[in-house]
């Protein structure tokens, strides 16, 4: 797997999350595509050994950004990265925003809000009307909602917005012609159940990844026709009806 060193532009704390921006002037990025990122490779870091997958939070043609929560050693190192990180991108299949119904609902759960920023920007550029709904465990994380003007927020502990999950912040999901969601897999399964039968529902899954280029078969999700497919190649965005949840 080929990684490229990139210069960090900015590091911001957004509530419980870190927003890391870096120079990425090459090529275009589709909403929902992802990055494998690390502070350095072998032999500088043998532990953690693998890179980490992150959705593109945004990309304006010059600067790309990643939103993440420090959960383990890999993300802790990225959070403290002084000047450069290494990335491999853009990877995977993102959201299909070409032929969907309107209006669109964008649902993010926890760190799953990440791809909604670039998705919202692309939808706006296409004049697609859309509403954004964000769910968090608590208010500390909900601070990132300020980056999504007009979004509706739910927190599980009720410390901000509606008490409950992101679905509790959506009064009528079945009236939307298109549903885009990213978050923990149980949340995505719930979104799939609630989304209107006629809507185009696309889910960006969260899986542990080894390689990011299809080789290790570690990041699979179960599909309706039986068996598993790789979230790094066939995903990470899937049409809801494809998944066996």
């Amino acid at each position: 797997m080929r990684f490229y060193p990139v210069d960090i532009e900015e590091r911001r704390e957004l509530g419980g999350y870190t927003l890391l921006s870096y120079r990425w002037p090459d090529g275009s990025v589709q909403p929902g595509q992802f990055v494998m990122a690390r502070v350095a490779g072998y032999p500088v870091t043998l532990d953690p050994f693998l890179a980490r997958p992150f959705s593109f939070y945004d990309h304006d043609g010059e600067v790309a950004s990643l939103l993440f929560e420090v959960r383990g050693r890999g993300t802790a190192l990225l959070d403290r990265a002084p000047e450069r990180i290494e990335v491999s991108a853009p990877l995977g299949h993102g959201f299909d925003i070409g032929a969907n119904g309107t209006p669109a609902a964008l649902l993010g759960g926890g760190i799953g809000v990440a791809p909604l920023k670039i998705l919202s920007r692309h939808l706006t550029a296409r004049n697609v009307r859309h509403d954004i709904f964000l769910g968090f465990a608590e208010a500390r994380f909900a601070a990132v909602a300020a980056e999504f003007p007009g979004s509706k927020v739910a927190t599980v502990d009720g410390s901000e917005g509606t008490r409950g999950t992101v679905l509790d912040a959506v009064p009528d999901l079945d009236r939307y012609g298109a549903v885009y969601a990213c978050g923990p897999n149980p949340m995505l399964a719930a979104v799939k159940r609630v989304a209107g039968e006629d809507s185009v529902c696309q889910l960006s899954v969260e899986e542990r990844m080894g390689c990011g280029n299809g080789s290790c078969n570690g990041c699979v999700v179960p599909v309706r026709d039986g068996g598993y497919v790789r979230s790094c190649i066939e995903g990470p965005v899937f049409r809801a009806e494809v998944l066996a949840w």
Partner: peptide
């Protein structure tokens, strides 16, 4: 072969443990 249900991989120091199941 469908292979094993996830989780299939876990990172370990200087390596990883996998259980793909010959998918």
């Amino acid at each position: 072969r469908a292979g094993n249900p996830p989780p299939r991989i876990a990172e370990t120091p200087a390596g990883m443990v996998n259980s793909i199941g010959l998918q």
